[in-house]
């Protein structure tokens, strides 16, 4: 396999094992560009890539921007703190405007689930989902899997535990889809109010006790806890969350010697993760950031030209 089936990356639901393997393999080559003196290749010369962010983001947006620039794309950043609905213009109209400007690839982050799919149905550009509401965040899952494969040599057969707010997490959903496709065993743990039990039907093991869930886990991926969830009554207090589901000193005895600790960032230190864990040798949180750029470069490389609609413009 040398190409992806779809010209979009809307989510990992439905993406095959071969396709994920191709992206991860391509990312290896892209990471090599990092070690060069001149970190730039001409793959996307003359292509227009738009970062369309309707939600605040630092690392994801910067990561896509750097990935695009290293591949010589014309990068355009558009941010909007308010959603398209509040602004008055519909998402479809915004997409059409970008299309008219010749956008080849549009990377979008948006608070509404399915918004990337909606956009993909109305513009000719390739759409990359950089997070759509609680639905998916496929590039985060791809970089997580790239990191796992890099450190562990393989994904198949590993036991991967995802900790925290599974219900509201697009990172969890994309990771679960991707990891199951790649043959990993997936576990989730967190407060019962934040775990949709339907995940069991997909073959995910559900735990409510962190100590039990950590037994035999090869990888632990710790999700950010959003403080406003507590206000909505999903759990009683940050303190209680930290007591039962925080990755802190208490759980160190339960970690495997060769465990790999991931966190998509930004971290809430003292809530879902304590400094003692974040600074542990087995945590690779900064390296995930580097790998994020490589993975996104890989995706650009594989999608380049697929969404090109410039020839239709005249």
């Amino acid at each position: 396999m040398s190409s992806l089936k779809s010209k979009h990356m809307l989510g990992l639901d439905g993406v095959t094992r071969e396709e994920i393997s191709l992206i991860l393999k391509t990312a290896e080559a892209m990471k090599e560009i990092f070690t060069r003196k001149v970190k730039k290749v001409p793959t996307l010369t003359g292509k227009t890539v738009v970062n369309l962010f309707y939600e605040p983001s630092t690392r994801t947006r910067a990561s896509f921007e750097l990935a695009g620039k290293m591949l010589s794309a014309n990068m355009m950043n558009l941010s909007s703190s308010s959603s398209s609905v509040v602004k008055g213009e519909s998402l479809i109209d915004t997409g059409k405007t970008l299309e008219a400007m010749g956008a080849d690839i549009i990377i979008m982050r948006h608070s509404a689930q399915g918004s990337c799919k909606l956009l993909s149905q109305h513009v000719k550009a390739s759409i990359i989902n950089a997070g759509d509401g609680n639905h998916e965040h496929p590039t985060q899952a791809l970089l997580d899997m790239f990191t796992i494969k890099e450190k562990k040599g393989q994904i198949e057969g590993l036991t991967v535990l995802i900790v925290g707010d599974i219900l509201h997490s697009r990172v969890a959903r994309s990771n679960i889809f991707g990891l199951l496709t790649m043959g990993a065993k997936v576990r989730v743990v967190g407060p019962a109010t934040l775990i949709p039990v339907e995940y069991k039907k997909l073959g995910v093991e559900v735990f409510y006790t962190l100590e039990d869930a950590l037994q035999g886990a090869d990888v632990v991926n710790i999700l950010r806890i959003q403080r406003e969830r507590q206000k909505k009554g999903m759990f009683p207090s940050i303190r209680e969350f930290h007591r039962f589901y925080g990755m802190n000193e208490r759980i160190i005895p339960y970690l495997k010697d060769d465990v790999l600790i991931l966190h998509p960032g930004p971290m809430n230190q003292g809530v879902e993760i304590d400094p003692i864990i974040a600074l542990d040798d087995r945590a690779v949180i900064e390296e995930q950031v580097t790998n994020g750029v490589a993975t996104r470069m890989a995706l650009f490389y594989l999608l380049a030209g697929r969404g090109n609609q410039n020839e239709d413009l005249n």
């Binding site: 689930q113 639905h135 998916e136 339907e198």
Partner: peptide, 13 residues
């Protein structure tokens, strides 16, 4: 629907 639909879409239940 809380179930398969919410699981796969992440839409509120």
């Amino acid at each position: 629907n809380e179930g398969y639909a919410s699981l796969m879409t992440g839409l509120p239940v």
